[in-house]
Amino acid sequence: MAASTTTNNNTSKTCFVTIGATATFTALIQRVLAAPFISALKSQGYTQLVVQYGAAGKPIYESAVQQAKTAGGKALSVSGFDLDKAGLGKHMRQAKGGRAGAGEGVVVSHAGSGTILDALRLSVPIIVVPNAELLDNHQVELAEALAAQEYVVHGRLEDLPGALKDAEALRQRQREWPPANAGTQREARGLKGILDEEMGFLD
């Protein structure tokens, strides 16, 4: 009974959106500040929306944030920043919650492997939205493969509110990272095994 604080109205719950340091991802910034996503956040008890919009994303963020703030009202506060030199760890942990009555929120991210990995290690639910504008589609493959194994929610720009619902389902069965290597002998020793073999350590 006491554990069900995530749905309690008195606790804070953060949605952290990150588009990464290098690329621009205009569509994601616009979608998370648009009315459908804001109302989905409110209906699921989120109290904070934090957007990392990147070096070039400032004008897009500023043109849409006022509307989002109005739509958010008192229940949902919206804030943003371009880049954080100290890394995104602080913001990820804010989304993870856990301290001072903070419930567990969600991370919405571009499909950068570093960000995904950070979220998996923190075991905070993550919605991965691949950037279709990038030529190389290996990010989509990563998102699909991880979603198939139920590590992440593969979000589509057209249906972010739906992805937010899926994230609630993911929260219930959040899997641990790194994956347990299921006892397969050849996988058990990882990088150490490889380096031992190549160094010629025979013990």
Binding site: S113, L117, H138, Q139, E141, L142, E144, A145, L191, I194, L195, E198, G200
Partner: peptide, 19 residues
Amino acid sequence: RGKMRTVYVESWARVKKPS
């Protein structure tokens, strides 16, 4: 002397095709 053995680890972000 069998030096400079090379170990390459492909990025975790590569699922279907190598870089």
